[in-house]
């Protein structure tokens, strides 16, 4: 009973055989993280959902003490392999790095404690062919290939991933909500279609960025130019600020005051820096260790 826990996972195909739990570095942070590999070669990412408070599951008539929920979702194993490939390539200033055999991608990593059980990924059917998305490959013997990470290919592959997300943003309310919170109200009718698709792309980049290192995130961001979107977002922020100010200064006296201050500022724009020599001297005085007079004398 101790090893029983509650998880949500995709339905396993019949006769799939036992899934194995493996530990591999997280593709973004490199921290050890947990994956589940189904017998049919589908890799599942495991996320632990834990509440702040103590909780348990009530299952049928029994209570499960451990109240954690595990979420398992399918994931492209290439994301996990990307940092491994970067490491095995051993790129330096002089050389573009070395080609390695398929097996040694996984076995080289064996030395590293964090990469234990990574070799199980090698058995995923079709993975060698998939590696072509990220790597240059050379046939050194009939049917035997060596691989080396290619950055242009990888970037192209990442962009495809971004597009895959972007195409599906409309089906995922949570992503629409994310855009609304982070950028602006995407549902507003005046949002034009190019801005809308830029926003979807932006959401795609954010999702994919969860699975790649900072260096790759930067490269990916640079490969897109979302300038229209950026200016739109800034405009929107400004608008919001003005709205907020109007709201704050709804009180007529406050409004009049703000207006007067604004006109003071515009009328006497040059006035602020015009401190007299004496005022400048005072402004420069070192008041370290001096308490406000209000702490000595009570306010009336």
């Amino acid at each position: 009973m101790a090893s029983q826990w509650v998880a949500i996972r995709p339905k396993e195909p019949e006769h799939a055989g036992a899934s194995v739990s493996i530990q591999a570095p997280h593709p973004r942070t490199g921290d050890p993280s947990r994956y589940v590999l189904q017998q049919d070669g589908v890799l599942l990412e495991v996320q632990k959902v834990e509440a702040e408070h103590k909780q348990s599951w009530l299952i049928g008539n029994s209570v499960q003490k451990n109240g954690v929920l595990y979420m398992m979702t399918p994931m492209d194993p290439l994301f996990v392999l990307l940092p491994v490939l970067a490491e095995t390539r051993k790129k330096s200033a002089e050389s573009d790095g070395r080609f390695v055999q398929y097996d040694s991608i996984f076995s080289d990593a064996d030395d590293d404690q964090r990469y234990q059980s990574l070799h199980r990924l090698a058995d995923i059917p079709g993975l060698p062919a998939q590696l072509g998305h990220l790597c240059d490959q050379q046939e050194y013997m009939k049917g035997e290939f060596v691989y080396r990470l290619n950055e242009d290919k990888t970037l192209k592959w990442l962009r495809l991933k971004v597009e895959a997300v972007a195409d599906n943003v409309e089906k995922m309310p949570i992503l629409l909500q994310f855009i609304n919170e982070q950028l602006f109200d995407i549902d507003a009718p005046q949002t034009d279609t190019s801005i809308r698709s830029d926003a979807y792309t932006w959401a795609g980049i954010q999702v994919v960025s969860e699975y790649i290192t900072d260096a790759w995130q930067e490269k990916l961001n640079q490969s897109y130019s979302l300038t229209n979107l950026k200016s739109q977002v800034e405009e929107h922020k400004k608008k919001q600020e003005i709205q907020f100010q109007n709201y704050v200064t709804h009180d007529p006296t406050e409004f009049a005051k703000a207006k007067r201050e604004a006109s003071d500022l515009s009328d006497q724009g040059s006035k602020k820096p015009k401190l007299s020599a004496g005022q400048k001297t005072l402004a420069k005085a070192n008041i370290k260790g001096m308490k406000s007079l209000a702490s000595f004398f009570a306010k009336k």
Partner: peptide, 9 residues
């Protein structure tokens, strides 16, 4: 009146 820094009056 106090000065800007509120250390003098």
């Amino acid at each position: 009146a106090m000065d800007n820094s509120h250390v003098a009056l």
